[in-house]
Design a protein around this nucleic acid. Structure first.
Length: 307
DNA sequence: AAATCGGGCAACCGCGCGCAG
DNA sequence: CCTGCGCGCGGTTGCCCGATT
């Protein structure tokens, strides 16, 4: 037995919303707020599932939503965060004021992933496809499990230097997996818009080393460092993402988003300066092999992010 | 001009998590 | 501790519309 349906599907309307339904939902939410979505359809006079109402509101009717095209800065931030977090769309969307997780997800699936592929970057691992193909080639020379007489975990050599071919397998982990669970949780905590000010707290000073350990740096340092840097400096830095009117009505998608985003990136920039990482990033950006991990002469400026 | 194709986006579905009783 | 419920998330679907043949 699965979970019971959240509403009587026989008496629930589905499909596109009409202007009249939008008006009813908007009128209700502006008067009563958005608590208890299951009761909203009845109270608002809508023959819709509560879930459908919530989705319609959060993705379309919510105040301060942006409906224009994504900017280059937004694109770069999405790519950067996706490299760190994978498909955690809600977390990524929290760093883009006025954007919803659905927006970001759709934009990634329809535009950004294709754009990355066109540039020779695998959108899942954020690594050059050429490198991945080369790694696949090494699979054929991998010794059978029985040869090592051990479990699957023993595929990874104890001493990578002793078996460089196998080290490639290790490097083929999806890039966001290169951040271990603890590191991802740290990033997630700092990105969490429900905890405004957390990133700015002295107890939560972020350092690159907190989530970019030696293994991660070895795996694909230029991708995240370089993209983050460009996203942060573009348009005058982090404030480029925090300049929208944050007086959201009803407390939904509230003021914490902008401040959390700005505080997060500001904390990173401050830490960069402390550690001299900004100089490292500048060096990386100056390197023509940047982003392609040295396997190509293309520079970031040639990636053609602009449409 | 009509038919077909493909991209983009809104909406739906199912699952996991957190919380209250 | 267990159970039920509501919410939020990520994946997927299906429709609409413009481009192409």
């Amino acid at each position: 037995m699965g979970r019971p349906p959240c509403c009587d599907k026989a008496n629930v309307k589905k499909g596109p919303w009409t202007a009249e339904e939008d008006a009813k939902l908007l009128a209700y939410t502006s008067n009563h707020g958005t608590g208890n979505w299951t009761s909203v359809p009845q109270r608002a006079g809508l023959k819709r599932c509560g879930k459908s109402c919530r989705l319609r509101y959060t993705n379309y009717l919510r105040p301060n939503l942006k409906h224009e095209n994504f900017t280059q800065e937004e694109e770069e931030l999405i790519v950067t965060l996706h490299a760190m977090l994978g498909s955690r769309w809600s977390l990524i969307a929290n760093q883009l004021p006025g954007r919803t997780d659905n927006d970001v997800k759709n934009y990634w699936n329809t535009k950004l992933s294709k754009k990355l592929r066109q540039r020779g970057i695998d959108p899942i691992t954020h690594r050059p496809i050429a490198d991945l193909m080369q790694s696949i080639g090494t699979l054929s020379i991998r010794p059978p499990p029985s040869a090592a007489g051990a479990s699957s975990s023993s595929y990874l050599p104890v001493n990578p230097a002793a078996a460089p071919g196998l080290q490639l397998l290790h490097d083929d982990m999806p890039y966001h997996a290169a951040l271990n669970h603890h590191q991802q949780q740290q990033v997630i905590t700092l990105l969490d818009a429900d905890a405004p000010g957390a990133a700015a707290s002295p107890d939560h000073q972020l350092k690159w080393s907190d989530f970019l350990d030696a293994a991660a740096l070895e795996a694909a340092p230029q991708v995240v460092l370089g993209q983050y840097h460009e996203a942060a400096v573009a348009g005058g830095g982090a404030h480029a993402y925090g300049d929208t009117d944050s007086t959201a009505a009803n407390g939904v998608g509230g003021d914490g988003e902008d401040s959390a985003a700005s505080a997060f990136i500001d904390a990173m920039l401050d830490s960069d300066k402390e550690m001299g990482v900004d100089q490292l990033i500048a060096d990386l950006l100056a390197d023509p092999a940047y982003y392609y991990g040295g396997s190509s002469s293309s520079s970031k400026s040639e990636l053609g992010w602009g449409c």
